[in-house]
Computed example of a mutant assay.
Amino acid sequence: MSGGQCAGADRFQYLQALVTEFQDTDSADAKEQVLANLANFSYDPKNFSYLRQLQVPDLFLDMLTEDNETLVEFGIGGLCNLSLDKACKSHILASGGPSLVINCLSSRREETVLSAITALMYLSTGASQADISTRPVVECMLRFSLSTNRRLSNLANVFLEDYCTEEQVREARSVEQHTALGIPLPED
């Protein structure tokens, strides 16, 4: 076995141990710490196949409906990272991921919202566009684009410019002017 194969086996075993620890622990703090580690490992494309084997995309998806906002934040962060992998992206789309990610747009946590917007951009394909650039999402992005938070407003503007048609934005603007309905902005 070459050094690369050994390192790969060690990496898989380490990630497997993290997943097992997450599943076995009853401690909220331990779950948060392990999920943060898994989200960090999902940044590295070398880990994508291991994380898929260990069903980590499903774990991240499951976290998006938790009451614990820290678990949601780390879950959406990890999911955002894994959305760059074609196989993970397909799995997330097939598993109803866009609607779960869209629900994260209403979080009061800035990092959760930023990761959700970014994940929606990564998950956007010709086939998924209709599920992602819906009128409520476009209206939400219009509100976010007006935020004094530069990170949020810049990301929302990128979404509006690159993932929405001019007609979608125009229609959402006309509806937005007639409603008081709004998703709250995350706290700065």
Rank of each mutant, 00 (worst) to 15 (best):
E66S: 15
Q55G: 02
A156R: 01
Y50M: 15
I183H: 05
V175W: 00
E187A: 05
V137Q: 09
S147R: 05
Y163S: 04
V72Q: 13
C164T: 09
V175R: 04
Q168F: 07
G78A: 14
S115K: 07
D58F: 10
M141P: 02
V158Y: 11
Q13A: 15
P98K: 09
S145L: 09
S153V: 07
T70A: 14
L64S: 09
P45Y: 02
V72N: 09
D67Y: 12
S106G: 15
Y14N: 12
H178P: 02
G96S: 06
L185F: 07
V137Y: 03
G182R: 06
S147W: 10
A39M: 08
V138E: 03
N68R: 08
L18S: 09
D24C: 10
Q55S: 09
L114M: 13
L123I: 02
F159A: 00
N157T: 15
C88W: 04
G8K: 02
E110H: 00
R170K: 09
I132K: 09
Y50E: 15
A116P: 04
N68I: 10
D162C: 12
L51G: 05
D10C: 04
A28S: 12
R151V: 05
E69D: 14
G8E: 03
G96Q: 06
Y14S: 13
H91Q: 07
Q53G: 03
S128A: 14
Q13F: 14
V137E: 10
A39V: 04
G3Q: 11
M141C: 04
I102V: 15
L123N: 05
